[in-house]
Amino acid sequence: MLLNDCDPGFKHQVAAEPGGQGIKACFACAACTARCPVAGHVEGYDPRRLIRLVLLGRREEVLASPLIWLCSTCYSCQEVCPQQVSFTEVLTAIKNIAARAGYGPPATEAVIDQLAAHGRLLEVGEFENQRRTDLGLPEVAEAPAHFQKVLGVEPAGGKS
C-alpha cells in the first residue's frame, strides 16, 4: 500500500461529523480491541484497525467495508479508551458518511418506511391494542404524521 494514494482528508471528514471528533486522538493502545465483544467473533473486526484505516485515509475501503455495520453499540470501547476517542460514536459518524455515500445497509429504507407509516418500528394496530386491553394495559396510539414531517417522507402505502 502506498500512503500517497490514500486520502489524508478522510480523517478530517470523519472528525467533522458529529461523534467523530475524537478519532484523531487515537494512540493505538488497543484497549478498545481488547474489550470489543464483536472483535472476538468476527475476523478482521478490530476497532483499533478501523481507526487506523481512517487515519491512513483508506476511504473507500472503510466506507465499503461490511465490518462497519457490525458494531453492537455496547460502548465498551468507549468506556475503556484513555484518549476519549469514543469509537462507538466515531463509527456512527463513519456509518452516516457511508450511508450518504450510498454504502448504507439495505434495511435503512425499510426502517424509514416503517417510521413514516407508523411512527414506530412495530405497528400497533387493532389486534395489538385488543391484546393490550385484554391484559388491562392502555391502548397505544400511533403518531406517524410527526415522523413524516421530520423525515421528510410520505407514508409508503400502508395505513396511516
Binding site: 461529523e17 458529529p18 452516516n96 450511508a99 445497509p105 435503512t108 426502517v111 424509514i112 418500528l121
Partner: peptide, 8 residues
C-alpha cells in the same frame, strides 16, 4: 434505529 445512517 436511524442513528447508524442518519444521526441528524
Amino acid at each position: 434505529p436511524l442513528k447508524a445512517t442518519d444521526q441528524a
